[in-house]
Design a binder for these strands. Structure first.
Lengths: 116, 116
DNA sequence: CTCATTAGTTACTTATAGGTTACCAGTTAA
DNA sequence: TTAACTGGTAACCTATAAGTAACTAATGAG
C-alpha cells in the first residue's frame, strides 16, 4: 500500500469513485430510492447517455449500485445505491467538505443531495 | 455541484488527490518533516523520476506541499506537507478505511504512514 | 403507416494521464 | 581527467478515459 498503487487503499478508493461523473451519479442516488435512467440523464444534461450508461454499468459491476430492469417496452430501468454503496456516504461527505473548503466561495453549492 | 463536474466538490477533491501516485506521495509525507526527492524516489521504485517530479510539482502548485530548494551542488530539494495539505488527513483516512474494507484481506496493509 | 417512446449499443475520434529514454549542470573524489 | 552525485527537463510514445453520431427493438398513439 505504501509504495504500489495496486496495494494502496486510497488509490483503490479513487478507482471505485474517481473519474469525472461517478461522484455526481452517486450523490444523485444518495437520498435513497430507485431512480430511472432517463431521470438521471435529465438531471445531468452534460453527460452523454453513452457515458452515463457506461459509468452506471461499472458502478453496478463494482457492487455499489443495484440495477432493476423491468422487461417492458419501452424499457424501464431503475438504479439504487446498494448497501455497499451506502458505506461510501461518509467518504463522499469528507471529500465534499474538503472540496468546499478549497472552493471559490462564489460558486459554492450545498451538500444536501436531495433534488426536488 | 450536483450536475456539473466543474462545480462538484467531490470531483474537485478527486482532481487534487486523485491519480495513480498522488495518494502514495501524500501518505509518505503525512508523518511530518521534510523529505528529499531522492528518498521519495527510492521509497517508490515503481514511479519514474519524471512522473514523481511532475506529480510533486502539481501538488506544490495546488498548495498541498511545500518545496525547499537549497542552492547546492549536487542539488538538494526537500518536500513537506503544507498546512493546507494537512487538512487532507481525515479525507485520506476515510478513503483509506473504505478502501481497506473493499480489499482482499490477504494483501491488507496498515494505515500507519510512518515508514521506518 | 408512421412517429414517439426508452435504455441502451457500435464504431469511431479526441483528450488526458502516464511512461521511457536520453540528457544536463557544478562540485567533489579518485 | 574522469566518474559519481542529484534533481530535474525535453522529446517522444502508449494506454486509458471521455465524447460524438448513428442506430436498435417492441409497443402504443394518431
Amino acid at each position: 500500500m505504501l509504495q504500489n498503487p495496486e496495494n494502496c487503499a486510497v488509490v483503490r478508493t479513487v478507482g471505485y469513485i474517481g473519474g469525472k461523473w461517478k461522484p455526481i451519479i452517486l450523490i444523485r442516488l444518495l437520498n435513497g430510492g430507485k431512480v430511472r435512467f432517463g431521470k438521471l440523464a435529465v438531471q445531468m444534461p452534460d453527460i452523454s447517455r453513452k457515458i452515463l450508461s457506461q459509468q452506471l454499468k461499472e458502478l453496478e459491476e463494482d457492487g455499489l449500485i443495484l440495477r432493476y430492469s423491468y422487461m417492458e417496452k419501452p424499457p424501464r430501468v431503475e438504479y439504487e445505491l446498494s448497501e455497499s454503496g451506502k458505506t461510501l456516504i461518509p467518504v463522499l461527505k469528507a471529500m465534499y467538505d474538503w472540496g468546499i473548503q478549497m472552493e471559490d466561495p462564489a460558486t459554492r453549492g450545498t451538500w444536501d443531495p436531495v433534488v426536488k
